[in-house]
Design a binder for these strands. Structure first.
Lengths: 154, 154
DNA sequence: CTTGATCGTCATGAATCTTGACTACTTCAG
DNA sequence: CTGAAGTAGTCAAGATTCATGACGATCAAG
């Protein structure tokens, strides 16, 4: 008989696997960013930075995309604004709303982060073979859409 | 030119994908557990429950496996002990250590959780095809070992 | 037996999340 | 046009969760 401990070790479930992968990516991403001058970022800032675009995004949209409370997004935007990564600009199309826009430093961070993650993925592609890795990611995307009913809590 | 926003939407990076998958599994797992009488568990308890075995595990081992501080594991074990899921027993082989052992209720929870995750994976296997899903998980395992240098922070 | 490391816990302050309410603005029905 | 209902973002307060350093007890090595 195979004990649960053995199965856990040889065939971790999907939750464990995705947790490991998420933390591994986060760790490497932020550690590398830190060596490139972006040493004032914390993991949680990723919820905003990961979905930021050059054109600006509304806070509510960031909340929806990241699955975080609007309140939390507000705090993160405050912090990132104080750190000089982004700024709030009025949304021309809706005077209630504000667009969260990257500054020059924010754009640099986005480019750096994209390059680092691309590097991680390239390493994985090398390990599995390019064709296999494309297949892996294709299946990964299929399993995670639609954005898992991820209505933000608020 | 493809904007970053479009690429993000059609080809999310590995961090975003694994985050979505992790949260989706967690949400479904705990929601279903709640309908089966295990409605007093929080996500964070998973760090302990996911690695618990019938034979008992040391707190330090749980810390290493889950990547959480020893301190946090201690709190989680306190809570789960109060909820009747597990108990601390002295480790016969080391009088400093204590073994975290599931109670009857803990064992029931473990069986239920395994069944639920198996169900989630079966659904995914159906969606991708059994053969593809096996391949997916095989590649997933390969990318996440060795246990991502996951020395616990402490 | 002494030295250094490990196991689990305690204690404290910091960071983080949750909840509800509030203003300003938009949208839509009448 | 006017008023009601809904949405965007913020404020505030309390509860939860985390990080950090230190401690007594035990083990392992010499």
């Amino acid at each position: 008989m195979v004990t649960r401990a053995e199965r856990r070790a040889t065939d971790p479930d999907l939750g464990v696997l995705s947790g490991r992968l998420l933390f591994a990516v986060q760790r490497e991403l932020f550690a590398t960013l830190a060596t490139q001058g972006f040493d004032d970022l914390k993991y949680r800032h990723g919820a905003v930075l990961a979905y930021l675009t050059a054109d600006g995004v509304r806070a509510t949209e960031l909340s929806r995309l990241s699955g975080q409370h609007k309140q939390i997004i507000g705090t993160l935007v405050d912090e990132l604004e104080a750190l000089g990564y982004l700024e709030r600009r009025p949304d021309p199309s809706d005077r209630r709303a504000k667009l969260v826009c990257p500054t020059e430093r924010g754009l640099a961070q986005m480019r750096a982060a994209d390059a680092i993650v691309d590097g991680i993925e390239a390493r994985h592609a090398e390990r599995l073979g390019a064709k296999n890795y494309r297949l892996f990611k294709q299946m990964f995307r299929e399993l995670t859409e639609p954005p898992p009913g991820s209505e933000p809590p608020d």
